[in-house]
Simulated scan of single mutants.
Amino acid sequence: MKTDPGNQLFLKTIVGLQKYRGKIIKNGRVILAFQKASDTFLRITVQDEIDLSLKNRFSESFDRQKIDHWLRELHLDKRKDSSVYSLSGGEKKKLQILLIVIQAPQIILLDEAFAGLDQKSVIKMISLLKESSAAKIFVSHQLYALDSIIDSAYKIQNKGLLKLEKLS
């Protein structure tokens, strides 16, 4: 599934990767989870990526024990020594979000966070994201189970935001 270019611009503008007119005030550190998870990785192995996230985290809310728990939950525990580029699309997406939660930013921007994941994996990812106290902004066409993690939903329409009464 391809994200609407306007949606990508919206997230890139918030994080500062897109020029814009006006002012955006962010209260805290922001991390963007790109739609294509492999665009996020900087190291070779899953363990290297975890170590880098631990080194660069903003708080110590996720310790090694919690990381090991989530690696098992996400079925990545046996892939620690694997190249991140050998992971399936779903495994890359799970790892990407785990790495972001480990880093503990105050704001997480998620572009099609659950693309390519089955419903069981989506539920696990939502549980993982709930462990983060960060504010989360989702841009997604896949709305399954998002109502369990979001407070409000908006649709980008005619260069503006339209508040939705319910997810459909």
Rank of each mutant, 00 (worst) to 15 (best):
K2D: 07
K2A: 04
T3F: 05
P5V: 01
N7Q: 14
L9I: 15
K12H: 03
I14W: 01
G16W: 00
Y20C: 06
K23N: 14
K23I: 13
K26V: 12
N27R: 14
G28S: 05
R29E: 15
A33H: 08
F34S: 09
K36V: 08
S38M: 06
F41Y: 05
L42K: 12
R43M: 14
I44K: 15
T45K: 00
T45D: 02
V46I: 12
V46E: 11
D48N: 11
I50L: 06
D51F: 13
S53F: 03
L54G: 15
K55A: 15
K55E: 15
S59V: 14
E60M: 15
S61W: 14
S61H: 15
S61P: 13
H69F: 13
W70E: 09
W70T: 02
R72D: 12
E73G: 02
L76E: 06
K78E: 12
R79F: 08
R79P: 04
R79G: 10
R79L: 11
R79Q: 11
D81Q: 14
D81M: 10
S83H: 09
S83Y: 11
S88C: 09
S88E: 05
G90L: 09
K93L: 09
L95K: 08
L98A: 05
L99E: 10
L99S: 05
A104R: 09
L110T: 01
D111P: 03
E112M: 09
A113P: 08
L117Q: 03
Q119L: 12
K120H: 11
K124W: 01
K124F: 09
I126L: 02
L128C: 07
K130Y: 00
A135K: 01
K136L: 01
F138A: 00
F138I: 02
L143A: 09
D151G: 08
A153R: 00
K155T: 12
Q157F: 14
N158S: 12
G160F: 05
L161E: 05
K163P: 02
L164G: 03
E165S: 05
L167I: 01
L167D: 06
L167A: 03
